[in-house]
Design a protein around this nucleic acid. Structure first.
Length: 496
RNA sequence: GGGCCUGUAGCUCAGUUGGCAGAGCAGCUGACUCUUAAUCAGCGGGUCGAAGGUUCGAAUCCUUCCAGGCUCACCA
């Protein structure tokens, strides 16, 4: 971090010269009335000749990203949040102010006012009348042509990535837009946005290993939440009928292109609705967000280097039960009969399964291996085995299945939703089952949450609840192949 | 955690059989008032990821370690 090289030394010298000449190299506030993009939009279509009689001035602030020096004149590009615009500095116009240029580098942040015109080659340009340095930059930016490619540097020094890679800026603008769009959607439909604990004494609402932390004053261990579910349902008990939360979940598991230890989840609950209602509702939300962010219901997604797919969000989306989907992708229906049948199929197809795995778990494994990767277009899968869903309501006609669906897009689970179990006795029994599984060594099994059962005993209206993985959704909307490309500061090992 | 790959100048990358460490951009000096990967002349810049080993000699071969990528396992 302390490294200094010749290029930095040069800039420090310039910094000193600026100070010596009475220039504040770290500027003050600057009223940048105009934006690069707006200027280009406003004047771009006007013919070059017309500028000869015009005298329109604009004021912008931004970072110098390119410079072409001619001795007594200089072209540069200045970049602000909206984009880049060329500026033209002339000694005969700037007079003494032109001397500032000697100590200015690519990367410096400047504010300037100039007359709008078009160059010989037709590029809209500001002929600078006044320039002030707002911030001297001490480190050289990556090369102008190849930019910053090194993935590690891009993630570790995201600020540099954002300066030089416009597509990266674009991705995170889209992410912000997607989240705003989701809020609009829910707010306009009578939901209230809530915040529930990130630090929980009993981690629940999902099957995953939690992070543990400690509160000194209370003298207790707490867990970073793996899901907000149990708290949001407590709010249904409390009388709120439509709630949503957009916030971070934390899971103490592997890191991959699809997993970051902290990730953003949207969860929402609707009293008196069920999972069937939610499927339609999900189509509505996602098409709403997709239109807003991508401008179209069809988006291109790069599945792998040599495989690109157009994902079409035009509803209705395909709906299959887990069993139907398995059959459609060539899984022998005998797997549903019993554990032995499922196990046999798994072994035959070289699917790794834990030797203690239950029937439901084995089915889940087979599904993940044989079906999930092929669900490219948005597809709802319904009717999951009870034991995989300790918080979901049983199906009336088959109590071993639950009223649940997951939505798959591009071969990935993006949504998980179900009719919420509101029978306290059943819930308590399911918790106990989970506790048993935990004692038998399943580290992901849930803990008993006594207070949640107590809440259900007061009565929770029948309700439907859903979780949407925001990072994964944004990946699809921005054609990003790694979750790290949609998280500003993804988790990495500390720099050596 | 396993397998495969990568790490060389600020950035993007070459580096042959083990034989003086290279290019482009960026930087510095000079020229240049419509360039846009500006151009022209010249100059400087390296812990070759780290440590150890083999060798007369290592960026290059071997071992270990560090970081990253892809992938598998686990998961969302």
């Amino acid at each position: 971090m302390e490294e200094t090289n010749e290029l930095i030394q040069e800039r420090i010298k310039k910094l000193q010269r600026l100070k010596d000449s009475g220039v504040d190299p770290y500027g003050v506030s600057f009223d940048a009335k105009d934006k690069a993009r707006e200027i280009i939009d406003k004047y771009g279509h006007i013919a070059k000749e017309e500028f000869e009689t015009k005298n329109d001035n604009c004021t912008i602030a931004g970072r110098i990203v390119a410079m072409r020096d001619f001795g007594k004149a200089c072209f540069a590009h200045v970049q602000d949040i909206t984009g880049k615009i060329q500026v033209y500095l002339r000694k005969d116009i700037l007079g003494e102010g032109y001397g500032l240029l000697k100590n200015i580098d690519i990367g410096d942040i400047v504010g300037l006012t100039g007359k709008v015109f078009k160059t010989k080659t037709g590029e809209l340009t500001l002929e600078v009348k006044d320039i002030s340095l707002l911030c001297k930059s001490l480190r050289p930016l990556p090369e102008k042509w190849h930019g910053l490619k090194d993935i590690e540097t891009r993630y570790r020094q995201r600020y540099v990535d954002l300066i030089v890679n416009p597509n990266v800026r674009e991705v995170f603008l889209k992410r912000s837009k997607a989240i705003k769009s989701i809020r609009n959607f829910f707010d306009s439909r009578g939901f209230i946005e809530v915040e529930t604990p990130m630090m929980q004494p009993v981690p629940g609402g999902a099957t995953a290993r939690p992070f543990k932390t400690h509160h000194n004053a209370l003298g207790i261990d707490l867990f970073l939440r793996i899901a907000p579910e149990l708290y949001l349902k407590r709010l249904l008990v409390g009388g709120y009928e439509k709630v949503y939360e957009i916030n971070r979940n934390f899971r103490n598991e592997g890191i991959s292109t699809k997993h970051n230890p902290e990730f953003t989840m949207l969860e929402f609950y609707i009293a008196y609705a069920d999972y069937q209602y939610l499927m339609n509702f999900t189509e509505e939300i996602i098409t709403y967000v997709c239109k807003d962010v991508a401008g179209d219901l069809r988006v291109t997604y790069t599945i792998s280097e040599d495989k690109e797919e157009i994902i079409d969000f035009t509803p209705p989306w395909k709906r299959l039960t887990m069993a139907e989907a398995m059959e459609a992708y060539g899984v022998d229906p005998s797997v549903f009969k019993d554990l032995a049948g499922a196990r046999e199929f798994a072994v035959k197809n070289r699917i790794d399964i834990d030797k203690n795995a239950s029937h439901g778990k084995v089915l889940d494994e087979i599904f993940k291996e044989k079906v999930e990767p092929y669900l490219i277009q948005p597809t709802f899968i319904t009717d999951y085995p009870l034991e995989l869903s300790p918080l979901a309501k049983r199906k009336k006609d088959n109590p071993e299945l639950v009223e649940r669906f997951e939505l798959f897009i591009a071969g990935r689970e993006v949504v998980n939703a179900f009719s919420e179990l509101n029978d306290p006795e059943d819930q308590k029994g399911r918790f106990l089952k989970q506790v048993e599984a935990r004692q038998a060594g399943d580290e992901e099994a849930s803990f008993m949450d006594e207070d949640f059962v107590r809440a259900l005993e007061y009565g929770m209206p029948p309700a439907a609840g859903e979780g949407i993985g925001i990072d994964r959704l944004v990946m699809i909307l921005t054609n990003s192949s790694s979750i790290r490309d949609v998280i500003l500061f993804p988790q990495l090992k500390p720099e050596a």
